[in-house]
């Protein structure tokens, strides 16, 4: 699904990630942890083709990222749902329009999946806020809307970057529950977080692998979690 082989990346001021090798299998559940600035967001950006590695190979659904044309990248991103830490909403659109945005920009028939939108909003508990603008929502509501948008195109994998970073514990558990539900539907999940309590709560429910970025390298976290 997503393969990283000896991947390295730097922004011009020294390597941030080095010698990263990982295969994300269908239906897997991964946590990616590490201190702030360790490279978690960079790792995710490599996985959804916002960055190209400075060394090594990233394969998305079997295709080398470097060999993809821009339209191929766009098509691939429709197969990857991403929940950004800052949600990345368009504030002039309603929540319903933001959630439906991946569908609006795709070639798919909007009418065919119109029901999906109301189901998704219902699933994340935002039916009542469908016509609200993003700034009118709380942090937790925005994260849930971002999750709904991430799965709008029925992606095979969902990448979440600090999805619980700006919400309280109760909302964190609710978001985690939604992500676990998605995993049980067969989707691969990768959550970048530094919230160890969230990881423990997840491990109580599912078999999740916990990876840690330390000193630019990716490690399998031990029993300390």
């Amino acid at each position: 699904m997503i393969d990283l082989d000896k991947v390295a990346h730097d922004y011009g001021g020294g390597a941030l990630l080095s010698d990263i090798t990982l295969r994300l299998e269908p239906g897997s559940f991964h946590f990616l942890t590490g201190p702030s600035g360790a490279g978690k967001t960079t790792f995710l950006k490599l996985c959804y083709a916002e960055l190209v590695p400075t060394a090594g190979t990233v394969r998305l659904f079997g295709r080398d990222l470097r060999e993809m044309r821009r339209d191929d990248v766009a098509n691939t991103r429709r197969r990857i749902g991403v929940v950004h830490q800052d949600c990345q909403f368009l504030d002039h659109l309603t929540i319903a329009e933001n959630v439906a945005l991946p569908l609006a920009v795709s070639d798919r028939d909007p009418g065919a999946q119109a029901d999906n939108l109301s189901e998704l909003l219902d699933w994340v508990g935002l039916s009542a806020q469908a016509r609200a603008r993003p700034p009118e929502l709380s942090g937790g509501e925005r994260q849930r809307a971002a999750l709904a948008r991430a799965v709008m195109m029925d992606p095979e994998i969902v990448l979440a970057d600090e999805p619980t970073g700006n919400v309280d514990w109760e909302m964190s558990l609710r978001l985690l529950q939604l992500l676990v539900e998605l995993n049980r539907m067969g989707k691969s999940i990768v959550i970048a977080t530094h919230d160890l309590n969230l990881i423990r709560a997840a491990k109580a429910q599912i078999a999740a692998r916990v990876l840690r970025i330390k000193d630019r390298h990716l490690q399998l976290a031990g029993a300390d979690l």
């Binding site: 916002e50 821009r70 766009a74 991103r77 950004h84 990345q88 945005l101 920009v105 948008r149």
Partner: peptide, 15 residues
């Protein structure tokens, strides 16, 4: 920012 978000959700350049 709008352009970046559109690219992130899978919009092609032509769109």
């Amino acid at each position: 920012r709008v352009i970046r978000v559109l690219r992130l959700v899978g919009a092609r350049d032509s769109y």
